[in-house]
Design a protein around this nucleic acid. Structure first.
Lengths: 122, 122
DNA sequence: TCCATATTTCAACTACTCGTGAAGCGTTGA
DNA sequence: TCAACGCTTCACGAGTAGTTGAAATATGGA
């Protein structure tokens, strides 16, 4: 993923409503949710939600499809994964100390002790 | 890491100069680099760099220490790792398809085939 | 003490982002 | 064909972030 796309993704995620939106969509997988339901869940006006959805879709973090009157939005897991991958691999060079902080992505054996230390510290 | 801190980190990273800055500092580890050298490397004016450094330090992504006349900045790998961890674990629930996109963080055996598919697609 | 160096802070300006409400567009059912 | 519904787009104002250059601060050496 190029840096320009990553910057767009980070900008899109750097907003409370949009981060919540991604958190809401991920567990629904490809089924996604219609815009109206998202608006109700997050307590956003229709126009505000539409604005945020457009920002996330533009950044490649969510997808949309029209189903009759509704527009269904779902998380674009490849897009999100690509952004995380850039931060971890391109930006941090897979640094073991970064991976140690990353519960989902534990470092290999030799860094295991470090991970414990870090967890205890925080 | 709480969502507020993650939002601050994402905001800080969502800027070309600041993302470059982190990329520059990570390989230098705890040794870090003096502000002047960073300014030269990135082609930034002193005041602009200082502004961006303050934003990154405020967000907990870098640290600073004064050494004689110089201020040495280094990457805060725990801070960066915490942000990535939030995205991967709290936001994406360790979803295997997200991990599959994440070269540094390959999914476990059963997701390996998926990873190949995704790589071939992009 | 005075000057040079390294960095930060400040003020002013510009540009962008956010939120609101109204209008518009596409779809469905009467 | 028309009204209702679901969603998007637009115009506007307010607030915030980014840039610049000048001034201020901190440190070290002559």
């Amino acid at each position: 993923m190029e840096q320009g796309k990553v910057l767009a993704s980070l900008s899109a995620l750097a907003h409370e409503s949009r981060l919540e939106l991604v958190r809401l969509l991920v567990p629904h997988g490809d089924d996604g949710l219609p815009a109206g339901e998202i608006a109700r869940a997050l307590g956003l006006s229709a126009s505000r939600l539409s604005f945020h959805l457009a920002a996330l879709e533009q950044a490649g973090l969510i997808r949309s499809r029209r189903v009759s009157r509704n527009v269904i939005y779902s998380a674009d897991l490849q897009g999100i994964g690509g952004t995380i991958s850039y931060l971890l691999a391109d930006c941090c060079l897979d640094h073991p100390e970064v991976r140690a902080c990353c519960s989902a992505c534990p470092p290999e054996d030799e860094a295991a002790g470090l991970a414990d230390t870090l967890t205890a510290e925080s």
